[in-house]
Structure formats: structure tokens, C-alpha cells
Amino acid sequence: MAETPSPRTPAWPPKSAPRLFVEQRLETGAHVSIEGNAAHYLSRVMRAAAGDAVILCDNATGEWASRVVEAGKRSVELEVAEQLRPREDVPDLWLCPALLKKDRFDFVLEKATELGAARIQPVLTRRCVADKLNLERARTITIEAAEQCARTALPEVTEPAKLDALLRDWPEERTLFFADEDGGDPAADAFVYSEGSAAILIGPEGGFDDAERAAIRAHPQARAISLGPRILRGETAAIAALSVWMAEAGDWLDDEEAMAEDLEPGEG
């Protein structure tokens, strides 16, 4: 008589477990206290109870599974159980988008996080329609985006910098690709030969003015690129350029394919 198969043990932590970034550095056995909006989310929205799983990330060591010890109205106590993944390696790419209207720039922050930008450096140009950024709110948007797309690393988000100051203080070792409405090398062609540190500079709704464009082109680290024959809105240009860079020079490349290209003929 055939044996009755035993029920399969459910995966732990379940894929549906909520995800949160915390400031505390994580390790096995650590106790973490969640308060404020995050506690409300766990206890009221997700209805977390003792024993339930919560995935935690600390932007330093990686991703960890934890269990709820106690779920109260104002705080949730967790105990870290085990590490699931180390912090991901992030390509050394900065996105430098000109500041846009609030909702459009929120979109850039969210999608740049999902796509893997290491740093988001907002830029102020003469044609920017916005001149201020709530940095705390911007960082909250990136955290929420990282939680939703299972990133284990957060992009650095900096205060907006005026274009002239950005160019003046630009690091010598970092290539500055800038999307020029007047044309440049096709982005895919330029990015495929990109080595080392890089950044992508995107203009505002009205584009760079002539003086700004001349100043950028005169910079020794700058390289003009074209994003194709169509006029793109600021947020579209930022996400399109970042996507192409990740495909040509970033971490969208297939690891096995990259290894095969590195082998000499007859090897492997």
C-alpha cells in the first residue's frame, strides 16, 4: 500500500511577508522595535501577529528574515532570525536629473530606485520650473520603492545642486554623459564602451539653454549623447537613459554571457 505523502512544509519566510528598511544594523538574534507609520502598516494594514514573518533590510548587511515577538498599536517588536541575502552590488552610476514638477520628479525617484541607480543627484538649471526638494520626502519615496521591488540597497539622494556648482566640483574619474537635444553619440553606442564610474545628466522640461549646453560640452568629463529622434519629457528621458545604461554597461548583462566574452578562443 502506497504511503500517503506528507504535507509539504510551507516556505519560510513566505513571499507575501511584508518588507521594511530599518536604520539599525541587523544580525541574527537582534531585536528591532518598529514604531510610527511602519508600525501602523504592520499591525493595522498587514495585521501582523506574534510569530508572523517580516523581511528587514538595513542598507548595509542585506536582507534578513525576522519574526514578530509582539504587535501593539504603536510599536511592533521583532527578532531577527536569519540572513536571506547579502546587500546587492550596485553599478557605480549616478543619475543627475534636473528638478521637475513634484509628481514627475516623484516618478523619477521611484523608477530610478527600481532600476538600480547608486545615487540620485537633483540638478537646478535655468529652465527648471521647481527650485526646491523635500529631501526627507524624496528619501521616503526611494525607500518605499526599494521595499516594493525587493532591493537590498538604497540609492543615495542628495540636495539639489546648481548646474555650475555641479560642473565645478565634478570628480575627474567619473564620466558625465548628458542628454543633448542638439545631438550626440547614440546612447547605446556610448554606454557600451563605458568603463568605471559614470553619471547621466538630464535636462528640465525646457531643456538646457545655449550657455548651459556650451558649459557642459566644454567640461573635460562630459560626453554628449542622443536619446533618439523624438523629444522626450524630462522624466521619460531620465528613465530611458538609465534603462539603456543598465542594459549596455550595468547589471542587466547576463553573467554567463559576460564570462564567455571574457574567455580567450579555445578556453572554457
Rank of each mutant, 00 (worst) to 15 (best):
Trp64Val: 09
Glu23Arg: 15
Glu114Met: 01
Ser33Pro: 00
Arg137Pro: 06
Val123Glu: 00
Ala60Asn: 11
Lys162Ala: 15
Ala188Ser: 14
Ala237Tyr: 00
Val108Phe: 00
Pro220Lys: 06
Glu70Gly: 07
Ala30Glu: 07
Glu261Phe: 12
Met46Ser: 08
Gly203Trp: 02
Thr113Leu: 08
Asp106Asn: 07
Gln83Asp: 03
Lys111His: 07
Leu84Trp: 01
Ser16Ala: 15
Glu181Lys: 09
Ala241Gly: 04
Glu156Tyr: 00
Glu256Gln: 13
Glu82Thr: 09
Gln121Ile: 05
Glu261Thr: 10
Arg217Pro: 05
Tyr193His: 13
Asp254Phe: 05
Gly29Phe: 11
Arg8Asp: 12
Arg139Phe: 02
Ala258Met: 13
Ser194Asn: 11
Glu147Met: 08
Ala179Gly: 09
Cys149Tyr: 05
Pro155His: 07
Gly184Glu: 10
Glu257Arg: 14
Glu267Trp: 08
Ala215Met: 06
Trp94Pro: 00
Glu35Cys: 10
Glu172Lys: 14
Ala130Cys: 10
Ala11Gln: 13
Leu20Trp: 08
Ile200Gln: 04
Glu156Trp: 00
Thr236His: 05
Gly36Trp: 06
Pro171Ser: 05
Lys15Val: 13
Gly196Leu: 08
Leu26Trp: 02
Ala179Pro: 06
Ile143Ala: 12
Arg230Cys: 11
Ala199Cys: 07
Glu110Tyr: 06
Asp210Glu: 15
Ala187Thr: 09
Trp94Asn: 02
Arg126Gly: 04
Arg87Met: 05
Ala214Glu: 14
Asp52Gln: 08
Thr158Leu: 13
Ser197Cys: 13
Arg137Asn: 10
Glu77Lys: 12
Arg19Ser: 01
Asp255Cys: 06
Ser197Val: 08
Glu27Cys: 11
Ser16Asn: 07
Val192Met: 13
Pro204Trp: 02
Ala38His: 14
Gly266Ser: 07
Ala224Tyr: 01
Arg151Gln: 08
Gly72Ile: 03
Gln121Gly: 04
Ser243Tyr: 05
Leu20Arg: 15
Gly36Ala: 15
Glu82Ala: 11
Ala260Thr: 12
Glu110Val: 01
Glu35Asn: 13
Leu42Trp: 05
Ser43Tyr: 09
Arg233Gly: 00
Phe105Tyr: 13
Ala161Gly: 03
Gly51Gln: 14
Glu88Gly: 02
Leu176Lys: 10
Glu77Pro: 00
Met246Ser: 04
Ala146Gln: 06
Trp64Leu: 10
Thr4Val: 14
Ala198Asp: 08
Glu144Arg: 14
Ala130Arg: 14
Ala161Glu: 12
Ile141Met: 03
Ala98Gly: 04
Arg230Tyr: 14
Pro91Leu: 00
Pro155Ile: 05
Met246Pro: 00
Glu144Ser: 14
Lys15Trp: 10
Arg174Thr: 15
Gly184Val: 11
Trp94Phe: 04
Glu144Cys: 06
Gly72Phe: 02
Ile200Ser: 05
Glu156Asp: 12
Thr4Cys: 10
Leu135Lys: 10
Glu172Arg: 12
Arg168Pro: 01
Leu154Met: 08
Pro13Arg: 07
Ile216Val: 09
Val32Phe: 07
Ser43Met: 09
Ser43His: 15
Glu256Met: 10
Leu166Met: 15
Ile55Gln: 11
Asn59His: 14
Gly228Val: 10
Arg8Phe: 09
Gly51Lys: 14
Leu93Glu: 03
Val69Ala: 11
Leu154Ser: 03
Asp255Leu: 12
Leu20Asn: 09
Asp262Gln: 15
Ile216Lys: 03
Arg119Leu: 10
Thr175Ala: 15
Leu26Gly: 03
